[in-house]
């Protein structure tokens, strides 16, 4: 089985990914934390990245978080792409659709931890 090197440009972190493995799963397997982990099913958009170099195979992911146009310009959810070459990326979280200051203040929780 082929292995590829995946590089996070922002944090200068590298990890190894098998050719049949989702990038986010490989990151977790290697003990790295450079991409936030959400539902791991292409639904929540937490692990959105911008691909700088390399090509992946795309699995199904929510159009709400990566539109067809965005996909063509290199955006992806890390939980739904498998590498076909060495790749580099940077995290690209999407700005929230709406912001309600009162609601977000209510959930500013002191104890939140990852």
């Amino acid at each position: 089985m082929r292995h590829f090197t995946i590089t996070d440009i922002t944090n200068k972190e590298e990890f190894n990914c098998r050719e049949n493995e989702y990038i986010l799963y490989a990151m977790q397997r290697s003990g790295r934390k450079c991409i936030p982990v959400g539902c791991k099913g292409g639904g929540c958009g937490v692990c959105r990245i911008s691909i700088i170099s390399g090509t992946p195979d795309f699995g199904p992911m929510s159009k709400l978080h990566v539109t067809e146009e965005e996909k063509n310009s290199g955006y992806a959810l890390a939980c739904r792409i498998k590498p076909k070459s060495n790749m580099s990326f940077e995290c690209a979280p999407k700005p929230k659709a709406s912001t309600n200051q009162e609601a977000s203040t209510n959930l500013q929780l002191k104890e939140v931890s990852q």
Binding site: G38, C44, S62, L109, E111
Partner: peptide, 22 residues
């Protein structure tokens, strides 16, 4: 005390529970 209200044993919320939604 929301941590304990949601997860009685850990008494700490994980960020995922609050932010990971579809």
């Amino acid at each position: 005390d929301l941590g304990k209200a949601i997860f009685y044993h850990d008494r700490v919320l994980n960020e995922r529970f609050l932010s990971v939604l579809t």
